[in-house]
Each structure stands twice: as structure tokens, then as C-alpha cells.
Design a protein around this nucleic acid. Structure first.
Lengths: 153, 153
DNA sequence: CTTATTGCAAACGTTTTGCACGTTT
DNA sequence: AAACGTGCAAAACGTTTGCAATAAG
């Protein structure tokens, strides 16, 4: 059973199509980054992604610059999305733009995703009120997760 | 007429009190950073703040490290708050922690602040649903502001 | 006179870039 | 063969830190 709504072969096909449309090339490195995000549920830094790829492909050496370049590409093509934190850089996750927001535990760093219809509707309304043509939005709720709360006693 | 709810002398007094309470010293540099934020409505990077201070005090040289240290201090004391963007660092604004969120124009960079009761309530509910002990939250709506929309035709 | 604060420069971690070499089309 | 992609190392960026000199209490 797949963790995703879309099977991997379909995702790769989509990626190939998008690359072709932009006169870009389908390379082993690009595929590995995509696959890594698809296979690992979670939010990863470029460095973590490099390590994960390294672990499964000990022969190949994928440079960190390539990881960065590929992640930017994937995000542009809506095959991945990033979450940015203050000074500590960005984290990426697989995703074909099913929008969602995040609960972030300030203790253990766990990230929980959620989607709330009412919140979305309110955001639309606010943008409209300010005559803003909304392109995107992010919402982060910081706090202490249930697990960490229990451990504090 | 002041742009703020609180007059500057009151702010400085508050700052002095807070410093004293923590056995910290009231210095010219700290005052200049506070005054700069108070005087300039907007969201500024540490570097921009340094430049603004420099411009009004050509004789004095306030190091960037001091700006960073002071901004962290002001934020801790709730005299300023920061907004962080992806890789491009933080921006600070004056403020005694009246919570608000932001609309950000992806074209011209303008930041519009707003506060929405319904949004806040929904956030509280979501945190509760996930058994999260909420500490803070941020919400950013990205889009094209009214002015930029007009100019595009 | 004690203690905190400053500016400087070096260190930092993350991200980007220039370039010669390799790979895809 | 042409064009794009790669790894590498260097550079860039925003931020933090150690330190000797300085200023506040």
C-alpha cells in the first residue's frame, strides 16, 4: 500500500513530461531526489536528502549543489514544496500541491500537517478584503505536542 | 500625531525598566535601535536598520553585531517582533506584541498587517484538536497587492 | 571599580555560483 | 554534436561568537 495518492511511476512520468516541456534533461540525480522525497514521508533538509540518497546509493555521489538545484526545480514544478524556518534553512516534502498547513513542536521538532476548510475560506476572504490577488499562503502553529507534554511530568 | 499608541518617552521608560530588571545597561546603541524601529513604520532587516541609524548619526558607528544583539533583546522583551522569510533573513518591526498576521506582495515586497478574530479562533480550535499546547502562530498570505495589479495593465 | 557592552574580525551554517568535465538528447 | 547537467571548490549571504577595548552603573 502506497502512502501516496499517486503511484510512483505516474509521478516519474509527470516529471519527465515537465522536463521535456522545458527542454531539461531527465538525469539519474534528479530521479533520485524525486524518489527520495516520494519514499520518505516527512520534511527534510537538503543535507538530509543527500544523506538518504547516499545511503541507498553508496556508489553514486550526488553533490549538494545538485540537490539544491533539483529541489528548486521540483518545487517550481509543484512536485515538492518547502517549509522555511528562521535561520535554520528550508525543509522539503513530496507533494503535488495539495495545500496544507503545519503544527510544529518547539520541543521535539515534529511537524504535523493539517488542512482546515474554515481557515482556508477565511484566508480567501481576508485577501479579498485587502484587494490582494492571493497566490499562496502559509500558516504555522508553534507549540508543544501531546507527546512532549506527557514527558514533561 | 504619533503613528503609535504609545508615546516614545513611555517606550523608553519601559525599556529602561526592563533593562534594569535584568541587570543590563542602557546604552546609546540600544536606544538608537529602539528609536529607529519606533520612528520608521515598516519591517526592516538588521542591515537596513544599521543604515538608517548611520544616516541619522554620521559620527557614531554602530556595529552590525550590536544591531543583531539588540534586536534579539528587544524581541525578547516584546518591544519588537520579527518576521522571517525563507533564506533571506528576518525583518523587524516595532511593537509591543499586539499579535497580527501579514499579507505580502510578491511583486513589490510590501507588507500589510492584519488581525482577524475568526482566524485566531479557528487556530486555537485546531491546536486543541491536535492536543497541541499552542505557543505562537504565524500566517502569511502571499499575492499581488492592489497597486501592483493596477500597474500590470 | 566592577560588570556589561561595544566594534571588530573571524567563524559559522546554509545556499549559490563559476567552471571544467560528463551525460542526455 | 549540441546543449544541458554535474561535482567541486570557492564565494556569498545572513548571523553568531571570541576578544580586547570601552562605557555604564
Amino acid at each position: 500500500m502506497s502512502e501516496h495518492l499517486i503511484d510512483y511511476p505516474v509521478v516519474v512520468e509527470r516529471f519527465k513530461t515537465l522536463l521535456k516541456a522545458n527542454a531539461l534533461k531527465f538525469t539519474k540525480q534528479r530521479e533520485l531526489v524525486l524518489k527520495c522525497l516520494y519514499d520518505h514521508k516527512g520534511h527534510f533538509t537538503p543535507e538530509e536528502i543527500q544523506t538518504l540518497i547516499q545511503k541507498q546509493n553508496p556508489t553514486l555521489n550526488v553533490g549538494i549543489a545538485t540537490i539544491y538545484r533539483t529541489l528548486a526545480l521540483l518545487e517550481e514544478e509543484n512536485l515538492a514544496s518547502s517549509l522555511s524556518f528562521g535561520t535554520q534553512g528550508k525543509r522539503y516534502e513530496f507533494g503535488m500541491h495539495q495545500h496544507h498547513d503545519h503544527l510544529i513542536c518547539t520541543q521535539c521538532g515534529t511537524i504535523i500537517e493539517f488542512f482546515d476548510e474554515a481557515l482556508e475560506a477565511r484566508q480567501d476572504a481576508i485577501a479579498k478584503e485587502h484587494q490582494f490577488q492571493m497566490q499562496d499562503h502559509t500558516m504555522k502553529i508553534y507549540g508543544i505536542c501531546n507527546t512532549c507534554q506527557s514527558q514533561q511530568r
